[in-house]
């Protein structure tokens, strides 16, 4: 401050007089505010509560393994369900079928001879033993729907299950009886065709006399087909 001692730049009397005005000070609240800010700026970071931190850390630690495990379980479940329902089985090498052609086997089963139907049925039974390799039958969606039905509709689904089972049983019985019936009819027809016309007409008359009119009519029709020129 030597260079301020020059009278031009320093006046001792003025300086002393000015120092008597040093009563102005910042208010106490301002002191407190600034000191608080200064202390907080250099204070060590406040430790966060341990519990939430450790919980968050444990959640972060387990998140990936749990997600992986859930993914594996879900994938296994989907594969198992797909195998059970037959969706996982490879489709047979055949041309694309229209919905009408898919319905044909059922129609053929209804119109086909009993022996053929029995053979098809046997084939179906044998293929049912290896479901994973069998082509999806037309009834498969229905079976899948039944399996996927919710437990709340268990009673109704039981009734639905019973009806097809009974129907299937009846069909199997018919198919088992059908060959024998067909052989019997063929034998009688061969015997009827081989007898002389007079004997055949006498048998027809006998049937009419016994009241078996339907059989008599059927036999007469067969007779006319066999002997169309008989007077």
């Amino acid at each position: 401050m030597k260079n301020l001692r020059d009278w031009e730049f320093h006046d001792e009397t003025l300086s002393i007089l000015y120092q008597t005005t040093h009563d102005a000070e910042p208010p106490a609240w301002l002191d407190e505010r600034i000191l608080t800010a200064a202390h907080r700026a250099v204070a060590p970071p406040r430790p966060t509560p341990a519990a939430p931190c450790s919980r968050r850390r444990s959640i972060r630690f387990w998140a990936v393994p749990v997600a992986l495990a859930a993914t594996v379980i879900m994938a296994a479940g989907i594969v198992r369900l797909a195998r059970e329902t037959g969706e996982w089985a490879p489709r047979p090498q055949m041309p694309m079928e229209s919905p009408s052609s898919l319905a044909e086997p059922a129609a053929k089963a209804d119109t086909a001879p009993a022996g053929q139907r029995a053979a098809e049925s046997a084939h179906q039974d044998s293929s049912a033993a290896t479901p994973s390799l069998a082509p999806a039958s037309p009834a498969a969606p229905a079976i899948r729907m039944m399996r996927m039905a919710p437990p709340s509709s268990a009673a109704s689904s039981m009734q639905e299950k019973k009806a097809p089972i009974a129907e299937e049983q009846h069909r199997q019985d018919i198919l088992q009886i059908a060959p024998a019936m067909r052989d019997e009819e063929a034998k009688l027809e061969r015997q009827a065709v081989d007898r002389p016309p007079e004997k055949w007409l006498a048998d027809i008359a006998e049937l009419r006399r016994q009241g078996r009119l339907a059989e008599a009519e059927a036999s007469l029709a067969a007779f006319r087909r066999r002997y169309p020129d008989y007077p």
Partner: peptide, 25 residues
């Protein structure tokens, strides 16, 4: 204070607050 000693700032502040405040006032 730069190294974290808050008490050093308190002393600095007490020393300079009056003159600085009056300068601004």
């Amino acid at each position: 204070y730069q190294e974290g000693d808050a008490s050093a700032f308190t002393r600095l502040y007490a020393r300079h607050k009056g003159p600085l405040y009056r300068y601004l006032l």
